[in-house]
Structures are given as structure tokens and as C-alpha cells.
Amino acid sequence: MDPNQAVREGLPPLLPRLRRLARALAGQVADADDLVQIVMERALARAAQWRPDAALDKWVFAIARNAWRDELRARGRSQRLFAAEEAGAATADGNSGPAQKLELATALATLPPDHREVVALVLVEGLSYSEAADLLQVPVGTVTSRLARARASLQSHLGKDT
């Protein structure tokens, strides 16, 4: 199958997971869906670079992570600077308690980007440490230590019993 067609046909089933990952990276629903749109556009534009022996989901998630890094760079400041202003419209809609979700969104927003993306990939998307390390192109030990520090930070924000 031609890679363009393979990517085009492979993307729709990935959309729900891509949206979930984007929400974990970006926080705000509107930002997250903007990110998803950019990721799909890039994936389609670069479909020829995808090798069929690579898992399409990991390839797309790597595009998402890089696109989000680009966006943060374009803003010229880290996530935490606008988190306070916009956390109110963040992940918090749904059924497990808006207050808890807002609290978690706020705690996530305090993480530096390299910690937050590990949290998103491992704790939300459920990648193994080595899959996350491949995707981020860092050693497994780096994933482990970022994740441990992110966990400690989140737990200190959320209270000991989360």
C-alpha cells in the first residue's frame, strides 16, 4: 500500500487516543484539538517518511510531542506562565468531579514540558518506559527519573493520598 494511503487510513482509528494524548500535553481542550489538527496535517504531509515497519501510533505520537514543543517555543515561554490564567478552562469537564480535575490540571500545568510529556506518554497513554524512551529519543533512565520527579511533584500538589 502506498504510504500516503496507509497513513490516511490509519489515522482515523488513532484519533481518540491522539486527542487524549493531546489533552494530557496541552491541557486546554481547544489547544489540544488544535494540536491534533496540526499533527494530522503534518502526518499527512510527511506520510512518505513513515516506514510500514514502524508502529503508526508511536510515529504519530512523536509528531504530536514535537508539534507541542514547537508550539511552546513559538509562545516563547513555558507552559507554566499561562497555566494560571487558563487552567480554569482546562481538562475539567466530565464526570469525575470538576474540582478534582481542575486540581489535577493545575498540578500538571506546573510540570516542566519534559516531565509532562513523560507523564502523558506513560501514565495516560500507557506506553512502557522503553517505548516512551524511543519516542522521546532519550535513554530509559531519563524517562524513569523524569517520571519519578513528575510523580513527586504531582503528589505534593495533590496531597499525599492524591
Binding site: 482515523p12 484519533l15 487524549r20 489538527q37 494530522m40 499527512l44 478534582q100 507523564v119 495516560v124 504531582l154
Partner: peptide
């Protein structure tokens, strides 16, 4: 327990996104 609770809380927060309808502007791109 704390580490598990955090992981569970992350999933409880973000997994519902999987069941949200995908906005038309996104699916239209494909």
C-alpha cells in the same frame, strides 16, 4: 497505593476523552 492512585486518577481524568465524539473539523481533515 499513592503511586497507583495517581496513575488511576490520570486515567480517570483523561480516558473519558476516548469516548468523546471527534469534532467535525478534525475528522473532515482525513
Amino acid at each position: 497505593r499513592q503511586a497507583r492512585a495517581l496513575r488511576a486518577r490520570m486515567q480517570a481524568t483523561f480516558d473519558p476523552v476516548l469516548d468523546e465524539p471527534v469534532p467535525e473539523r478534525l475528522s473532515a481533515l482525513l
